[in-house]
Write a protein that binds this DNA or RNA. Structure first.
Lengths: 216, 216
DNA sequence: TAGATTGTTAATCGATTAACAATC
DNA sequence: TAGATTGTTAATCGATTAACAATC
């Protein structure tokens, strides 16, 4: 699924796609087969106009006079997001967060296969979590040379994050999911998404002091 | 710290504040005492103009011909974000994610005190993690009646999330940090920040398919 | 003082919303 | 066909960038 014209899709649009998909999933579970941009707007809070604009970035998924077919739109958005394929994932850093991600079994169902964790802690190396081995961090380059890895998850502290990133990129990993509170720069062709938990918490405390600034 | 005029600060500005703060922290560690918007721009990637605009939403923190004092700007941003006070936190759901948050000891240093976890699983109730008790979920309303809690963290599945939210709100909790993949609606006066991990991962896979759409 | 750099206004750019013709 | 609703163009709104006078 490529964009209609060769126009860059803005990040704002992309961030709304998972939300649409989630809403469509709910509709499917409710047994609703079709939906208009207006009804979707009532459920999701974006204007009908915005919904149509967003979707039309990727093609005409609707039908005049009818609306959108829920199942089909759900599938198309999944394709656009790249969720119609499988991904091999490794996690660097087997602290609590890394473990939480491994244990969150849903990722497996969604097509994300965690093949290994990496850590420097001697006592962890050689053990497994949910049958996934914890390997020595120093063997990461070798591992990447031998295995094709799509996504590398950085669950280390921020100090080691840049070095970990470098090793992942050198090893040909094209997607980085970063949980370290570091501002990493990736080369062209490599994508990164940051999950800065502390930033999110700071925004929460901001809005707690200034509830009048909340959008709604 | 309130905004200069009675103008609503946009969410985009607020989301940049933690980033500024992080950069200033680095500068402090490097022993740098003052910085101009131009130098900050080089480090952080936002334009100097944007940096000045952002900061001026909250007051004139700089000095013409000099720039900004690093320590003082760091402190002011901390105040704006509400990080100059303490928060009592409870976590609902003691699964892996809940545990990861408890174990992430830094939060304690930053002034977030986790006073209890809540869960429905009989075998967990009565145990502790890092001396923090896991209490029965059914006792949550009573707990909230007896203790003042600032922030409630939702680490349950998405099905129970709305009910948990309701209990927290009824109990007077004013800040919600939501990790459930649910689109929750909070009443006026209550703030919420969502950490939709799967949305973030979906955006990553999107950009992996469409690297040309990446900003940079 | 002269130079530097802010604070702030004005210009531009991009994203959202409105409107409506196309069409199922 | 008539009614509904999309796809798309045009208008509006807001956020970012540029410019520069104020001032340390």
């Amino acid at each position: 699924m490529t964009s209609k014209k060769n126009i860059r899709i803005s990040d704002a649009v992309i961030r709304r796609l998972p939300r649409y998909r989630r809403c469509l999933e709910t509709l499917m579970r409710e047994g609703i087969e079709r939906i208009s941009s207006g009804e979707l707007s009532d459920r999701i809070g974006y204007t009908a106009s915005q919904i149509r604009q967003d979707l039309n970035n990727f093609g005409g998924f609707g039908q005049q006079g009818y609306g959108y077919n829920v199942q089909s739109l759900y599938d198309r958005i999944g394709e656009i997001l790249g969720l119609d394929r499988k991904y091999t994932v490794i996690i660097v850093g087997s602290g609590n967060l890394g473990r939480a991600l491994v244990n969150y079994a849903k990722y497996q169902q969604w097509g994300f296969y965690i093949s290994a964790l990496f850590d420097v802690k001697e006592n962890l190396i050689g053990t497994t979590i949910r049958d996934i081995p914890i390997l020595a961090y120093e063997t990461l380059p070798d591992y990447l040379a031998e295995h094709s890895v799509d996504i590398g998850v950085i669950c280390t502290g921020k100090t080691s994050a840049p070095e970990v990133l470098q090793k992942l990129v050198d090893g040909g990993v094209k997607g980085i999911w970063n949980f370290a509170a570091a501002d990493l720069v990736v080369p062209k062709g490599v994508s990164i998404q940051d999950v800065h938990l502390s930033d999110s918490l700071s925004c929460l405390t901001y809005y707690m002091q200034h509830p009048e600034d909340s959008v709604r």
